[in-house]
Amino acid sequence: MPADLLKGIRVVELGQYIPAPFAALQLADLGADVVKIEPPAGDPMRHLGAARADGVSAAYAALNDGKRIVLADLKSAEGQAHAQALVAAADVLLESFRPGVLARLGLGRDDLARLNPRLIHCALSGYGQNGPLARAAGHDIGYMAAGGGLARLGTADRPVSGRLPISDYASGQQAALSIAAALLRRERTGQGCFIDIAMTDVMLSWQAADLAEASIAPPAARGEGSIDGGAAGYNIYRAACGGFIALGALEPAFWGNFCAAIGRADLVARHDDPLPQIQLVDELKALFLTRSALEWEERLGAADCCFQRLLETADIPAFPQFGARQMIRHRQDDTVAVSYPAWIDQAPAQERRLPWREVGLPEALARWAPLSEA
């Protein structure tokens, strides 16, 4: 059986691409019943990236499995009526429009209060509902730039934008957490809630420790700190095979274990070399180029020195740890699915109840009617 922590909770999702769909996916994984409203042509994510045999992108399926999809033109009176009917029966409305758009679609704050005063409404946007940038367009790279995340990623020469859209996923998780907390308060008080989440704010919250330190002393330049390339014991190195290994021997004990495993007791005292440890990093670069990543894994994997061979995307499904955690599942369409990342009551997350599927409004409402009338 799937997790039932949110069993009976009804969620209407108005989201596209990653942030809101990822948030709703987590709620669905925890037992919520999610109905996603998409425009008549569908979420553009359906056509982004590698497509399955049915023409739908594998990424879209990964973010929307377990949901029922209703296609509706929210710019039309009929589409707005459909959306209002769903929201009236829902516990949660999760949307990712820019401020002001929802009101133009007949779902403004006054409309929602009239339709469903107990509703948890979570608005997930790039810059939030107020401020000079509230209506500005953006994507992950911009939210990372504004929130401080991009400044801390990269080399000494320049910031680097990674393949993983960090603010998208972080904000989706923040939305799911906030919704769960609001549902708990409603259970106690009967009170609905409006949650305003800005992706830039989420990124800023991740900078709390760095900002606190910077108020006392100037921060180290990018690539010169203890965890961003300045320390030899906490770094990424290329192996002879062209692959990479990650060494996290930050503490003296782990560094000592590493030095013992490579037979270099002379390096133990250099753990405390001033940052950035350019010369020591260069020595380890040369060392790691003498063996393949797999050879280093054989030598260092059991040394208790925080070593990990860098897994490429194709390597991940076969990683034994994920097998033991039952995190990877192989679907009938030959794609890989990743499970909800938590064991509940000592049991791993189960396979999602259903693949995503399109349904008509009558079917979506019929399933909710008994709950809404209870």
Score class of each variant (00 low, 15 high):
residue 241 C to S: 15
residue 102 L to S: 06
residue 364 A to T: 12
residue 36 K to V: 01
residue 169 Y to D: 03
residue 27 L to T: 02
residue 373 E to P: 01
residue 166 I to H: 08
residue 279 Q to K: 11
residue 271 H to M: 02
residue 342 A to Q: 06
residue 51 A to I: 04
residue 205 S to Y: 06
residue 91 D to W: 03
residue 211 L to P: 00
residue 92 V to H: 03
residue 48 L to V: 15
residue 72 A to I: 11
residue 374 A to F: 07
residue 184 L to H: 11
residue 158 R to E: 11
residue 222 R to Q: 04
residue 160 V to W: 10
residue 302 A to L: 07
residue 286 A to W: 13
residue 212 A to N: 09
residue 339 S to L: 07
residue 344 I to D: 00
residue 229 G to V: 10
residue 352 R to P: 11
residue 86 L to V: 14
residue 30 L to K: 03
residue 169 Y to R: 03
residue 211 L to F: 05
residue 354 L to T: 14
residue 160 V to Q: 07
residue 28 A to D: 00
residue 223 G to I: 13
residue 278 I to D: 04
residue 363 E to H: 14
residue 188 R to K: 15
residue 243 G to I: 02
residue 123 A to W: 02
residue 82 H to K: 03
residue 362 P to G: 09
residue 75 K to I: 01
residue 213 E to C: 04
residue 170 A to S: 11
residue 320 P to H: 11
residue 193 C to H: 10
residue 120 I to N: 07
residue 91 D to E: 05
residue 56 V to M: 12
residue 269 A to Y: 14
residue 290 T to K: 09
residue 344 I to C: 01
residue 32 A to F: 04
residue 111 D to W: 09
residue 121 H to V: 10
residue 372 S to I: 05
residue 357 R to D: 04
residue 370 P to V: 15
residue 278 I to A: 11
residue 328 I to T: 05
residue 240 A to D: 13
residue 126 G to M: 01
residue 44 P to T: 12
residue 197 I to T: 10
residue 260 A to K: 10
residue 74 L to M: 10
residue 51 A to V: 09
residue 170 A to F: 01
residue 341 P to T: 08
residue 187 E to N: 09
residue 5 L to D: 00
residue 174 Q to A: 01
residue 151 A to W: 05
residue 98 R to Y: 09
residue 271 H to N: 07
residue 62 A to W: 04
residue 114 R to F: 02
residue 180 A to Y: 02
residue 282 D to Q: 14
residue 206 W to Q: 01
residue 66 G to D: 01
residue 274 P to I: 04
residue 200 T to L: 02
residue 160 V to P: 02
residue 162 G to T: 14
residue 46 R to L: 04
residue 240 A to N: 13
residue 173 Q to H: 11
residue 219 P to T: 10
residue 189 T to N: 09
residue 312 E to G: 14
residue 330 H to Q: 11
residue 312 E to Y: 12
residue 323 G to D: 00
residue 341 P to S: 07
residue 371 L to D: 00
residue 359 V to R: 09
residue 272 D to G: 12
residue 227 I to T: 15
residue 234 Y to P: 03
residue 321 Q to A: 15
residue 276 P to G: 02
